[in-house]
C-alpha cells in the first residue's frame, strides 16, 4: 500500500534522508521509529506530497506521492507532527472547512470522534491547550474514515488517559483493516499496535523488521539495589551483563535472558527493582552496533 524506493532528499546543508526503502502492506501497522531529527518527518512529508524527492520514489496505492498528491489525499488521513491549526477560528469551523474541502457528507464519524475525545469544538483555536489542538488534529485525520493513516508522533501532547483512548482508536482501525504508518521516538508508544518496525537514524534506515523480532532484540536495563555488596558479587557469578555498579546498586542489561535473571534475583536479597528508561539508541544498541560495524 505504501512503498518507498530509494527515497532520497538532500537538503542544502547536506542533511536529509538517503535511500529510504520499505513497504507497508495493506492492513498492516508500521511503526517508524527514530530519535528526533533522524528524518521521520521528512520521509512523511514525501508521502504527503509536500516534498519533491531528490531521487527515488514514494508511492501510495500505486500512485506517485508527488504527481498524484491530491488524488492520494482521498484515501489518506494525516496527523502532522507539529500541531499548527489555523488561528482566528474555532475548532468546529476548522473541522467544517476540512469536511467541505473533502466534500464529506457523512458527519456521523466526526461527531462520534468529538464525543469520544470529549472535546469542546466551540473554543477558539488560539485559546486551546496543546492537548486540545492535538484532539482537533486527530479528528481531522480520522473523520473521513480513510483507508490509510499517516500519523506523525500522534500521541505527543495527549495526557495519559487520552493516549489510552487514542491507542484504542488505533486498535479499532487496525481491526477494520486500515493501513497505518505512525512515527515515534519511543518504542513503548508503538510496541502495542505495530506489526512492523522501521528504525531510522541520521537519515538512513537501520532495519525494517517484525515487531516481535525487534522486541526480542531490544535490551532493557534493570536497576537492582541489594541488601549488601556481597550480594552483588553473587549476582556477578551468574552469566549476566552488569553495566554499572555503585555500591550495592547495579544496572543489569537484559535482552532475552529473563528466566536466568529472575532465577538469580530470587535467590538474592533484592531491596529494590526498577526499570531504567532508555533512549532509542540504548534500547536498540544491538542494531546500532551492527550498523556501525558494517
Amino acid at each position: 500500500m505504501i512503498q518507498l524506493e530509494g527515497l532520497t532528499k538532500r537538503f542544502s546543508n547536506g542533511k536529509g534522508i538517503f535511500d529510504i526503502q520499505f513497504e507497508v502492506q495493506a492492513g498492516k501497522v508500521f511503526g517508524f521509529l527514530g530519535p528526533n531529527g533522524a528524518g521521520k518527518t521528512t520521509t512523511i512529508r514525501h508521502l504527503m506530497g509536500f516534498f519533491h524527492p531528490t531521487k527515488g520514489t514514494a508511492k501510495i496505492d500505486g500512485m506517485d506521492c508527488w504527481q498524484d498528491a491530491a488524488r492520494i489525499q482521498e484515501k489518506v488521513g494525516y496527523l502532522p507532527g507539529e500541531i499548527a491549526l489555523m488561528e482566528n477560528m474555532n475548532g468546529l469551523d476548522l473541522i467544517r472547512l476540512i469536511c467541505d474541502m473533502r466534500r464529506l457528507k457523512d458527519r456521523k464519524r466526526r461527531d462520534e470522534l468529538i464525543e469520544r475525545f470529549q472535546f469542546d469544538p466551540d473554543v477558539p483555536i488560539r485559546k486551546m491547550s496543546k492537548g486540545m489542538k492535538q484532539k482537533v488534529g486527530i479528528i481531522l485525520a480520522f473523520m473521513h474514515n480513510p483507508e490509510i493513516l499517516i500519523l506523525d508522533e500522534p500521541t505527543s501532547g495527549l495526557d495519559p488517559l487520552m493516549q489510552k483512548t487514542f491507542v484504542e482508536l488505533l486498535e479499532e482501525e487496525k481491526i477494520q483493516g486500515k493501513t497505518i504508518l505512525m512515527s515515534s521516538h519511543m518504542f513503548q508508544e508503538i510496541d502495542r499496535t505495530c506489526d512492523q518496525v522501521g528504525l531510522i537514524k541520521e537519515g538512513r534506515m537501520i532495519t525494517v523488521n517484525d515487531v516481535a523480532e525487534v522486541r526480542k532484540q531490544q535490551q532493557k536495563v534493570f536497576v537492582v539495589t541489594f541488601g549488601s555488596v556481597q550480594e552483588v558479587e553473587k549476582l556477578k557469578t551468574a552469566d549476566l551483563l552488569v553495566r554499572h555498579q555503585e555500591g550495592s546498586r547495579v544496572e543489569v542489561v537484559i535482552r532475552d535472558d529473563y528466566p536466568l535473571f529472575l532465577k538469580t534475583l530470587a535467590s538474592l536479597d533484592v531491596q529494590n527493582l526498577d526499570l531504567h528508561t532508555q533512549s532509542l539508541e540504548e534500547l536498540f544498541m544491538h542494531y546500532y552496533e551492527q550498523e556501525g560495524r558494517s
Partner: peptide, 11 residues
C-alpha cells in the same frame, strides 16, 4: 504549518 491541513485534502 497550518497550510498542511489544506494541502492534505483532495485538492
Amino acid at each position: 504549518g497550518s497550510m498542511a491541513y489544506l494541502i492534505a485534502t483532495p485538492n
